[in-house]
């Protein structure tokens, strides 16, 4: 059975942690539903697909072991991301081999949108649906955005999550994911640009 809960029904981090400490099953379910996908993705970005689910589950166990130490200095999501990233990096060192990381990120060139002189090949129009609210109110477009987000290569998705959703600084992101600043900037722009192009394709044929 699948339950759907609206995010506005969220309980805050402190209440969620308290519920978990009390052994409340709904709090555990909510925490897993909210944060597990991000944790798996962070692990994928660091160590690759094969170990990601296992790392995320190990990270949960570590997190639960130290739940009483969660002081709320960061959000629960950021705290879990850090635990996951540390677990993935430890495992990566133990494996002592470079596992397949987001192999396509360098070759995954987007379609060239520019002519030989460096100008836009096609005019860039103003979108009919101009505000984020209008865009997300369109269910097809909203689905396109979430599907595109989910299909982003793991490192791109991780940087986008940390920068645009979590508001982490670039230097923290480089530490969490063990990547250089220039890589992080390229990954962020590729992720944003992929989503922008999908929205543009939809709006151009609207």
């Amino acid at each position: 059975m699948t339950d759907q809960l609206q995010r506005q029904d969220f309980i805050n981090d402190a209440a969620l942690v308290e519920g978990m400490l009390d052994g409340d099953s709904a709090s555990f379910e909510m925490a897993v539903a909210l944060y597990h996908p991000t944790m798996v993705n962070i692990a994928k970005a660091i160590i690759g697909e094969a170990f990601a689910e296992e790392i995320a589950q190990d990270a949960w166990i570590s997190a639960i072991r130290s739940l009483t130490e969660f002081a709320g200095r960061s959000s629960l999501r950021t705290w879990l991301i850090q635990i996951t990233a540390n677990a993935a990096k430890t495992r990566l060192r133990r494996e002592k081999r470079q596992v397949s990381l987001d192999e396509n990120w360098q070759t995954n060139e987007m379609e060239d949108r520019f002519d030989h002189s460096g100008h836009w090949g096609e005019p860039v129009s103003q979108w009919d649906l101009e505000t984020p609210e209008a865009i997300l109110a369109n269910s097809e477009l909203s689905d396109i955005i979430s599907q595109t987000f989910e299909q982003l290569p793991p490192q791109q998705q991780a940087v986008l999550t940390l920068y645009d959703l979590e508001g982490e600084s670039m230097s923290d992101i480089c530490n969490i994911l063990d990547i250089s600043a220039s890589n992080a900037r390229v990954l962020l722009h590729r992720a944003r640009s992929t989503i922008q192009q999908k929205i543009a394709q939809y709006q151009d044929h609207f």
Binding site: L5, R7, D164, I195
Partner: peptide
């Protein structure tokens, strides 16, 4: 839009 997306999605 990406930043607003989580608030608009339901938790499954």
């Amino acid at each position: 839009s990406v930043q607003l997306m989580p608030a608009k999605q339901s938790v499954v």
